[in-house]
């Protein structure tokens, strides 16, 4: 019997895809101009390759990624400028982050029946800035546990320890838990490794190309489907 429902944050409860797209575009433009190169295609392919590499290593620091881009082009960079760009980046993401329309209703409904928790990876910003999630009390009030993985000695997802730590705090067993997330690598694979039930959300309001995976993991396209969890996982 399911007693707890765990959630990812970005592209699961909120739609921040436009924010990330926009922030990425702005950052790429600044770096390209600062590098003083002319082949945009070459730059973009290197940038994307490195970003993929960082994502696979669950290294979410934009600053570290950008330092690596400069390293690739044999250029030094000003650390304080990159920190400023990083803050601009997250400000842009924040501005473009909106709750999925059904999210609050679904959480309100589920909170009476299950223990709820959210696990999101850190923004890895230098400085005292907090994750956007912390600045959304109307959302966090539904969760018994809010974990920013990658901060305060917690490993980032998909490391299984963060999922198991959450279960410990909630006092539930892995057989009694489902996890809802959008990212194949950090969410679904992590949860499978941790030994409990994932639900892959490919929200219909997102326009993105999903990884082509043959899987038995249940897929939903809207949070409303969670109102009947038993039928999803059966």
């Amino acid at each position: 019997m399911i007693k707890a429902v765990l959630f990812d944050f970005d592209q699961t409860l909120v739609n921040s895809s436009d924010g990330f797209r926009s922030a990425e575009k702005q950052a790429q433009k600044k770096i390209f101009e600062d590098l003083a190169i002319t082949s945009w295609d070459d730059f973009l392919s290197n940038y994307r390759r490195l970003r993929k590499q960082f994502h696979a290593e669950s290294n979410l620091s934009r600053k570290s990624l950008w330092e690596e881009v400069y390293w690739h082009y044999c250029r030094g960079c000003d650390s304080s400028v990159l920190e400023k760009w990083e803050n601009d980046y997250w400000e842009t993401v924040k501005t473009h982050t909106t709750l999925f329309p059904e999210a609050l209703n679904v959480l309100k409904n589920l909170s009476g029946r299950y223990k709820l928790a959210v696990i999101t990876n850190t923004q890895a910003q230098a400085g005292p800035q907090k994750h956007r999630l912390i600045q959304m009390p109307h959302l966090t009030k539904y969760f018994e546990v809010v974990i920013i993985a990658g901060e305060e000695d917690l490993s980032p997802k998909p490391d299984i320890s963060v999922f198991l730590a959450c279960l410990d705090i909630l006092g539930v067993d892995r057989t009694e838990t489902v996890y809802v997330g959008d990212d194949w690598h950090t969410d679904i694979c992590g949860v499978v490794d941790a030994g409990f039930q994932p639900i892959w959300i490919k929200h219909s309001l997102l326009s993105r190309s999903w990884p082509n995976k043959e899987t038995s993991v249940p897929v939903i396209t809207n949070l409303d489907s969670l109102l009947d969890i038993d039928s999803i996982i059966s």
Binding site: E33, D34, A36, I37, T38, S39, D42, C74, R75
Partner: peptide, 13 residues
Amino acid sequence: KYMWPDGKMLNRD
């Protein structure tokens, strides 16, 4: 202009 797009640094391309 092509070799130093920003007037300072050599275009690595």
